[in-house]
């Protein structure tokens, strides 16, 4: 009991599990810009084969009304993954809860930590930065405004990188949090990169902990872009606070 069903799995050759181990079954939904009909379904099947799916089957197709067709397709993936060779960069920090963070500040930093956050560029969605900073937080996890010893400034949405950097300089920020929620055509990458360049140009990149977050942000991507850390979904204020506080001490920025 309680044992996971991995006994027969060859972790060097992992493939999707539908209803039988190693059947490779995956489900897809996509639209092709071709008119509804038998030819459209055949096009979907051929495409699925090119994606590496054996025995693709169009289980549903729908005329979108403008000469386009939408499909739901099942197929058996031929590819496998060597799970044993995977290494994902992770934020290495012991997560402290709010009270532990407050105690950590009192004992190790001995002053207020200033954190500036914003949802930058054209993005108007503050749900991410609000979840981390606003008093109420998200899903029962209080935000940074609630933390004794942290002065958190939420600049809201559609903040330009220039405005954010100016604010960070003005309040002598210890850390900058950037949220990117909704993005199109990878605009968030350009936007995040531009902020790093600006901080470097101002000569303060080394003086702040620079963190980004959002549903499409991973720690690895963040590091590639020149950030200290990236927080994806299911990150709360305590994850961000623990990281920022620990790094401040580690880098002797206190």
């Amino acid at each position: 009991m309680g044992k996971t069903a991995t006994a027969k799995v060859d972790l060097t050759k992992v493939k999707p599990y539908g209803d039988t181990l190693n059947d490779g079954m995956v489900q897809l939904s996509f639209t092709l810009p071709v008119p509804y009909g038998d030819e459209a379904s055949e096009a979907a099947v051929i495409l699925a084969k090119k994606m590496g799916l054996d025995e693709p089957s169009v289980v549903y197709s729908k005329d979108l009304g403008i000469g386009y067709t939408n499909f739901i397709v099942y197929g058996k993936c031929q590819h496998t993954v060597d799970y044993t060779s995977i290494k994902v960069p992770k934020i290495e920090v012991d997560v402290m809860d709010r009270l532990e963070c407050e105690k950590f500040i009192e004992e190790n930093i001995k002053r207020d930590v200033v954190i500036v956050g914003a949802c930058t560029g054209t993005d108007a969605h503050t749900v991410g930065i609000d979840a981390i900073i606003n008093m109420k937080g998200f899903d029962g996890h209080f935000g940074l405004e609630r933390y004794k010893g942290i002065e958190a400034i939420n600049m809201g949405s559609q903040v330009s990188n220039e405005t954010l950097v100016a604010k960070a300089i003005e309040v002598n920020a210890d850390a900058i949090l950037v949220s990117q929620i909704v993005t199109q055509k990878d605009i968030h990458i350009k936007n995040l990169t531009e902020l790093v360049e600006l901080l470097e140009a101002e000569g303060i990149r080394d003086k702040v902990i620079l963190v980004c977050g959002g549903p499409r942000i991973s720690h690895e991507l963040a590091q590639e872009l020149g950030y200290d850390a990236g927080f994806g979904p299911r990150s709360y204020a305590e994850n961000v606070a623990s990281y920022v506080l620990t790094e401040l001490v580690k880098r002797k920025l206190v």
Binding site: F30, L64, V127, V182, P215
Partner: peptide, 12 residues
């Protein structure tokens, strides 16, 4: 919602 602006099939 919360992933991207709607794709063709999302709307239908």
């Amino acid at each position: 919602e919360a992933i991207h602006t709607p794709h063709m099939q999302d709307r239908i």
